[in-house]
């Protein structure tokens, strides 16, 4: 009995945050490729979740994502994040054209829930990865109905944290994101047992 318990699969808050950050990394890169924000020759093939995902080769983007995601992981493990938005804007007019929202909902898990900092879940990693794979597939399928981005675009990652969050160096507070004439499409959601992640794409409806 004791050995069975010892080998039991167990995900902590930190592990859950890691899984989500990994998803965000691949998701954001995939969106960058699929939406054509950077030229296709700037991307490399990688295998993840049983899919071929294209990752940016640009060192600037890599370092940016590394910085943002490491901070995100720290905040996620303390359940301080409500939403992460990847905003695609027109580089010249700064107009927001698309906003990919990753809504985070904290869950209690199925372990001992007396101490909120030591929650655990026994959800299997393969199951979580399968769920993530479905979402990634949907992300690549969105190209068929999202409007064409026919201008030079750029992106930014904005994090909706609690008011009492202390900001580290090089982090700024910014305003809310507003899309003119928005249209929202919810993709599948996945859960690590401790966090539930909903992926929603808001885009500007062309009139």
């Amino acid at each position: 009995m004791s050995t069975a318990q010892a080998t039991k699969n167990c995900i902590t808050l930190k592990g859950s945050a890691q899984i989500i950050v990994e998803y965000l990394k691949y998701g954001i890169n995939s969106i960058l490729f699929q939406r054509g924000i950077y030229p296709a020759e700037d991307f490399n093939n990688t295998q993840q979740y049983g899919l071929t995902i294209l990752m940016s080769k640009d060192p600037k983007i890599q370092t940016f994502l590394e910085n943002v995601l490491s901070q995100t992981e720290e905040w996620l493990s303390k359940n301080m994040i409500k939403k992460i938005s990847m905003v695609i804007t027109n580089a010249h007019s700064k107009e927001v054209l698309e906003c990919w929202d990753f809504n985070m909902q904290a869950e209690l898990g199925d372990g001992d829930s007396s101490d909120p900092t030591k929650l655990t879940t026994t959800k299997e990693l393969s199951r979580i990865q399968n769920e993530i794979r479905d979402v990634m597939r949907q992300i690549s399928a969105t190209v068929s109905y999202l409007p064409l981005l026919d201008c030079i675009c750029t992106f930014d990652v904005m994090i909706h944290t609690l008011q009492n969050t202390e900001l580290p160096a090089k982090w700024d507070e910014t305003g809310a994101i507003v899309i003119q004439n928005p249209q929202a499409v919810q993709l599948r959601s996945f859960s690590t047992g401790l966090h539930k992640v909903d992926t929603v794409v808001n885009y500007k409806m062309s009139t």
Partner: peptide, 28 residues
């Protein structure tokens, strides 16, 4: 709910200073 902006008062939006958007704005 989809947009997740129901209680924006309790939240603040933050972003990393050296983001590609800022760079692109600057370069443009």
């Amino acid at each position: 709910c989809l947009r997740g902006d129901f209680n924006m008062k309790d939240l603040k939006v933050v972003h990393f200073n050296e983001n590609p958007a800022a760079e692109a704005y600057e370069s443009s």
